[in-house]
Design a protein around this nucleic acid. Structure first.
Lengths: 223, 223
DNA sequence: ACGATAATTCGTACGCCGTACGATTGTCAA
DNA sequence: TTGACAATCGTACGGCGTACGAATTATCGT
């Protein structure tokens, strides 16, 4: 055996799985392929991970671990803004994790640590327990939902997005030729997008985020 | 052959697939099982649907078809509020569709019709083209993200939710015994939830929705 | 140094999946 | 009757997750 391959262990398995998913998509994360990447037999993985579902949960918790914890002190809006952006960044690095962040049967330690910190931040900012939960739920719904859109609509660069949009239009035109007449508002938007400067996913994200954070302001108790 | 089973066709296949997914989960929608439900051979389905991916897209567009189109006239906020709630309702009836609404390669007719109508509503309310897109993106991100949370956290009734929460706590406690000390804010919330009146997913949804819609108000052009 | 014990690895096999391919059957116009 | 075309389906292939138990390697008391 070459010197490079050490013993297997849970951490090595999870990290390799994340790498594989990042590079080739979650669809190519199979026990056989993952084992091959690790220079091991497929069944060896099962000594370190009980089954594939748990493997995925472990991968997701690694992604949670990449999210910046909100700072203890500072303006609550700025702090939460930062953690929201950090969350979105993590999901852009690992798009396969979108839609799975809430799915793990038993949330991992990184997940719990983050949730606890954000709740603490909201409580410190003067939200009641109930309102802190509402506020958290609202933020996360937005973040995950936005990541979902981003994943499928392939915003990417302006050029990529223009290309994607144009392709969609062509696909639809193949079915019903007179798109502009049938969907005038859609046509207006697409024309506005493709023709003009384009669309920045970054700007769109922080726009929505600020609408939400500003809207939450008035639900705090006394400062 | 019994009198009941007519010829296969795309519509019948899609509807049966949706029924199957609703009843037994998306995981049990396989070509073989779907065919069996239709009293046909597995390969017969491929005459009506090019492959499984297209089958899923067709199913999703059926869900889009269940969403109430926004009314032409009326207070924009009330109208969009209604369509948001209608969207969430559809996603609760068909949780398997969550996370797939944006995923179809070529959006189906119901999808396009809805998007066109909502954009038209926003334009009529006095949003610029760019702002209408932002506003739409924000609303949908929230709706889909909320549906995602709802799907996995199993809000359900207050009893169900309390039970789920309690189970999660037990799972976590099995790993690290002193949960309350490690995650004080989480503990506070869980105690507040389980002990007190509980949590209404309906209320949480419209709370966030109204924060968003109210927050968008000031981005309209002249009334 | 050595044997026992435990930790770790992995080969084989099973049932399920999506679907390529080609044969088969049903329907109807000429 | 015949030929064309629409619709159905049986068989087979490669890939998946993983149950089971055997094989190998590491660890440690003596």
């Amino acid at each position: 055996m070459p010197a490079g391959d050490e013993r297997l262990n849970r951490e090595r398995v999870l990290k390799a799985a994340v790498e594989l998913a990042d590079q080739d998509g979650i669809g190519s994360v199979t026990m056989r392929r993952l084992a091959e990447k690790l220079g091991a037999g497929a069944m060896s993985l099962y000594y370190h991970v009980p089954n594939k579902d748990e493997l995925l949960s472990g991968m997701v918790d690694l992604v949670f671990g990449e999210i910046e914890l909100p700072a203890e002190a500072g303006d609550w809006k700025a702090v939460l803004r930062r953690r929201a952006i950090s969350t979105r960044d993590a999901l852009r690095r690992h798009p396969w994790a979108v839609g799975r962040m809430e799915a793990t049967a038993a949330p991992g330690p990184n997940d719990l640590r983050l949730h606890d910190a954000v709740l603490g931040c909201l409580r410190a900012a003067g939200f009641s327990v109930e309102m802190a939960v509402q506020a958290y739920s609202l933020q996360d719904a937005y973040i995950y939902g936005f990541a979902l859109q981003e994943k499928y609509l392939a915003f990417g660069t302006r050029e990529e997005f223009a290309e994607t949009a144009a392709k969609r239009v062509r696909e639809v035109e193949a079915r019903s030729p007179d798109v502009a007449a049938e969907y005038p508002n859609l046509a207006e938007v697409v024309a506005g997008f493709v023709a003009k400067h384009g669309y920045s996913a970054d700007d769109a994200f922080v726009f929505g985020l600020d609408v939400i954070l500003d809207g939450l302001e008035r639900f705090r108790l006394a400062p």
